[in-house]
Amino acid sequence: MTLKDHIRPVPDFPKPGILFYDISTLLAHAAAWKEAVRQLHAAVAPLKPDVLVGIESRGFLVAAPLALELGVGFVMVRKKGKLPGDTIRHSYALEYGEDTIEIQDGAVQPGQRVVVLDDLLATGGTMAAAVELIRKVGGTVAGSAYLIELSFLKGRERLAALGVPSHSLMVYDS
């Protein structure tokens, strides 16, 4: 099965000149989605994670079912103010401004092996911030994984500079 056959390209979304790769068509096709989770399992299991972290919000769709398959916990990284209880924050620079992500205090224990997942790797900015946040709470980031990678935006190189290996199921060069 070719997973790219289940990704819908949407031109000029969310703004003119952007080609958006829509995963909703993959999620809607049971056999393709099952195959995607199987391939992620094969890539992530050798990293021996204690817990998977998903980045808001489509990363939740990727990480949660994979955590069930691997028999490990699932933790959310969300934008500031979206998680209940005590949280640990990490702010990071955007092209124009700053953003902040959070994780619940105690969700990742010091020394736990973590794999971080998202639907898409582009520039790697949010993923790099999530890596820094997990390290701030004492977790060891064993790797990252994605359904889609936009290789021309060099996110993989950014994460490699942080010592984080990346695995993508589908790569687009433009």
Rank of each mutant, 00 (worst) to 15 (best):
M1Q: 12
K4D: 12
K4H: 07
K4A: 12
H6G: 06
R8M: 06
P14M: 10
P16T: 04
G17N: 03
G17M: 00
L19G: 03
L19P: 08
L19V: 15
Y21N: 11
S24M: 13
L27T: 02
A30C: 08
A30D: 09
A30R: 15
A31S: 12
A32H: 06
K34F: 05
E35D: 14
H41F: 14
A42V: 05
A43V: 13
V44I: 14
K48I: 03
D50M: 03
V51C: 04
L52Q: 01
E56F: 00
E56M: 01
G59F: 00
L61N: 04
V62W: 04
A63C: 08
A67F: 03
E69W: 03
L70E: 05
R78Y: 03
K79S: 00
K80A: 14
G81H: 08
K82A: 07
L83G: 11
G85N: 09
D86K: 15
T87E: 11
H90I: 10
A93N: 10
E95K: 09
E98G: 04
T100Y: 01
I101T: 05
E102Q: 13
I103E: 09
Q109R: 15
G111C: 07
V115S: 04
V116I: 15
V116Y: 08
L117F: 04
D119S: 07
L120N: 05
A122V: 01
G124H: 06
A129L: 13
L133D: 10
R135K: 14
V137K: 13
T140R: 13
T140Y: 06
A142C: 05
A142I: 07
A145C: 04
Y146F: 15
I148Q: 09
L150H: 03
L150M: 07
F152H: 12
F152V: 01
F152D: 00
R156A: 14
R158M: 08
R158W: 01
A160W: 06
V164K: 10
V164E: 09
V164N: 10
S166A: 15
H167L: 01
H167I: 02
S168M: 06
S168Q: 05
M170F: 08
D173Q: 14
S174L: 10
